[in-house]
Computed example of a mutant assay.
Amino acid sequence: MIQYSLRCAQDHRFDSWFQSASAFDKLHAAGMVSCAVCGSTEVEKELMAPRVNVGSEKARTAPEAPLSAPANPAEQALKELRKEIEKSSDYVGRDFAREARAMHSGDAPARSIWGETRGDEAKKLIEEGVPVAPLPFLPTRKSN
């Protein structure tokens, strides 16, 4: 895994993890890397310094905080947002674009949904006036 510091065309700065440098390049070329703040796909890598973990033997063997505990207020807010979205809306998976269009056109009852779609399909939804927004997390089944 590799962590990159990223910046979008609107000068929003954020970090994101990728399986490898080539995985980032492939996703970026496909327009699938988007700003965590505004959703723009005009994203570039920022200058970064490598992180090297050093410390005493005690620090290296000390138990770490649980991975599920938020490290800061921003992570806590994201955790609460995810919990609220999962509680109050329907996960439609890869049918997101179809479901969103159907609700927008009146062919399906309006309700809160979330799911997955390709970047180009999300752009089409926006161009069609369908109100959508990117979420700052992946479905549970896709996260480690």
Rank of each mutant, 00 (worst) to 15 (best):
P139D: 09
K26Y: 11
M1V: 03
L27Y: 07
G129V: 06
Q19H: 11
L47Y: 08
R98P: 08
I2W: 00
E44D: 12
P73L: 05
P109I: 09
S68N: 06
R60Q: 13
E57M: 12
T117G: 00
L135E: 08
A108F: 02
P70I: 04
K45R: 03
P131T: 02
E86N: 08
L27H: 07
D95L: 13
M48G: 14
A36P: 02
P109D: 15
Q76N: 04
A59H: 02
M48E: 15
R101K: 09
S40N: 09
R7H: 05
P63C: 10
N53A: 13
A30E: 15
W17P: 01
S112T: 02
V92R: 01
M1H: 04
E46L: 12
E75G: 11
R101N: 08
T140I: 08
E64I: 10
D11L: 03
Q3C: 04
V33Q: 03
R13S: 04
C35T: 04
L125H: 07
V54K: 08
A59K: 04
I85N: 07
R13H: 06
S68C: 07
E99P: 01
S88D: 15
P134W: 05
R7M: 09
V37K: 03
A97Q: 08
E42L: 10
W17D: 10
L78R: 15
K79V: 11
E99R: 13
A97R: 05
A23R: 04
Y91D: 13
S88Y: 14
T41N: 15
K45L: 02
D120S: 08
V54P: 00
P66L: 14
S56T: 11
Q19V: 12
R60S: 13
I2E: 01
T61D: 13
S68D: 11
R141V: 12
W114T: 01
L67P: 00
S22R: 02
T117I: 00
E64F: 03
K124T: 09
A100P: 11
R51N: 04
R82E: 15
E116V: 02
F14H: 10
L47P: 11
T41D: 15
D95V: 00
R141M: 11
E57P: 07
R101L: 06
D107R: 13
A100D: 05
L47Q: 13
V54E: 10
S112E: 10
L81R: 12
E42P: 02
A122K: 01
S68W: 06
S16L: 00
R13D: 01
P131W: 03
M48R: 14
F96T: 07
I113L: 07
P50A: 01
G119C: 09
E84R: 14
I126Y: 01
A102V: 04
S16Q: 13
A30I: 06
M1L: 08
S22G: 02
A102W: 01
F18M: 03
L138M: 11
E99H: 10
S16W: 05
L138Q: 09
F14W: 14
V33P: 01
G93T: 11
R94L: 15
V130S: 04
Y91F: 15
A30G: 10
P109Y: 09
G93N: 12
A59E: 10
I85M: 14
V130T: 08
G39E: 05
E86H: 08
S88T: 15
E42M: 06
C35V: 00
L27I: 03
S5M: 12
L47M: 12
V33R: 03
A97Y: 00
E86V: 14
I126D: 00
S88I: 10
E75P: 01
Y91P: 06
L27N: 07
A9G: 05
P109W: 03
